[in-house]
Design a protein around this nucleic acid. Structure first.
Lengths: 248, 248
DNA sequence: CGTGCGGTTGAAGTAGGTCAAAGGGTGTGG
DNA sequence: CCACACCCTTTGACCTACTTCAACCGCACG
């Protein structure tokens, strides 16, 4: 686990993700890679990396594993506001706000880099392409959050679940986590319900409908999209909001 | 309208907003004020300032008037994803994405400053406090968007509408647009429905319920919150996510 | 071998949607 | 100055997509 080769691989998803948004300079890549290796951390499944109210003083970059942001109402109702996938920088900039207004929990074991704020700021100052890539990432996250608002506000259950699956599929691709038409999908139906604003029971029935329509298979934490076009159609999905083209 | 005094006043909401997030330097204020005055624009009510797919090459800072961001599905369903209030910088950073993934429409006549990207970037480079304030603003907007996800996903109609009213009230305060317990509220029930993910009919009945509970008055585009604590209670509202304390 | 979690099923209830029509205010054109 | 049109609001009746409750199943794990 501590051979240079393996460690180099660890940073791959992040670099792929950022480089897809904004071409990184060689120097930027090297600096980033070093910062990542110096801040390596692990967390188990079902842990909360941060809670509402916590002070924020570092940036976390996810190297492997899935997480989710969520908020909980006083009476226990829970809403997942986004999924954080390998290569995502969670809180690249949230730290500007000093205090967490939401929580972050792991859905799987996770390997991440914890980069202290001053280190991160030096990183951005040292390489313009890195700074721009991180800002782009932040803006894409905002765009995703807007789309979730639309999804939950105006799509019916079937469209809503389908849309979420399309989004995750599309986001996993650039970081190389799609294998054919399948991908890991470590999200329980409970999580899916909390992410879509539906009840577990209804998510269950909705998934069955998607399966019955031969659009997807979802078993043993593996999602297979059998008919991507079909799924996108019923989801009213267009990938524009993910801004996968290079920006800036 | 073109006396220096009046023009100075125009920029007030923006400066108050940004300064509340991150104390601005004298120099920063002066630079910002100049950039604003050089880019003054107007728009009428019901105009779209930008549409999905449009290229983005400037930042708009709202000096007076209300706008909303929204997305429309193919079949006409519409979701407002946020309200843009006086003092807000719409797209302070969205321009990084090059293409709009949503539209922006006016709810009232609007006065705004259109600042071209290179000018804006020079502004940020010239004064650190301005740069930080704008980034903070962007992060607060993300936080608001997350809360909307929670609102629409997990709150019932009554809570949801109440929460939206609380939020707007709270956001108008720092820019000095609250008069006692009243404020302008140029949002139709149609808009309210599109913002909350409800139907117009149900928004209407929900408002009546809030009125019957003597929590609010809403007539002639004026909102009066008669019992703020009560409204916040049923909305499960806490202002934390608005990060009104200085940050950074 | 129990215990607990996630998934599945059925039955019954309800929050909120849809449809349709009517009322009030305002602006416009004849 | 009236009439008409348009937009927003309001109301009533009916409908349904989704929730809730409750139970059961299968599987992994201690």
């Amino acid at each position: 686990m501590h051979s240079p080769a393996l460690e180099g691989n660890l940073a791959q998803p992040v670099i792929r993700r950022l480089d897809a948004l904004r071409q990184l300079s060689e120097r930027g890549i090297a600096l980033l890679q070093r910062a990542i290796l110096e801040g390596l951390q692990r967390a188990g499944q079902g842990e909360d990396l941060a809670n509402e109210g916590d002070p924020v003083d570092s940036v976390r970059i996810i190297l492997s594993g899935w997480l989710c942001r969520f908020k909980t109402l006083e009476d226990g109702r829970r809403q997942i506001t986004s999924f954080i996938l390998p290569g995502d920088a969670c809180d690249a900039c949230v730290y500007l706000l000093s205090v967490m207004d939401h929580s972050i929990g792991t859905l799987t074991p996770v390997i991440y880099a914890d980069i202290k704020r001053p280190v991160f700021e030096r990183l951005l100052a040292a390489d313009q392409s890195l700074a721009q890539a991180f800002w782009c990432e932040t803006m894409v996250n905002s765009a995703i959050q807007r789309e979730w608002t639309v999804n939950i506000g105006r799509r019916i259950a079937l469209e809503r679940v389908a849309h979420l699956l399309c989004e995750i599929h599309e986001r996993l691709r650039p970081v190389g986590m799609i294998d054919g038409d399948s991908c890991a999908f470590p999200v329980t139906q409970i999580d899916l319900a909390d992410a879509t604003g539906l009840s577990v029971v209804h998510v269950n029935r909705t998934l069955q409908e998607l399966r019955a329509s031969r659009l997807i298979t979802l078993r043993d934490r593996t999602l297979t999209i059998m008919d991507l076009r079909g799924l996108q159609n019923i989801a009213l999905f267009t990938a524009d909001y993910l801004h996968t083209k290079r920006c800036g």
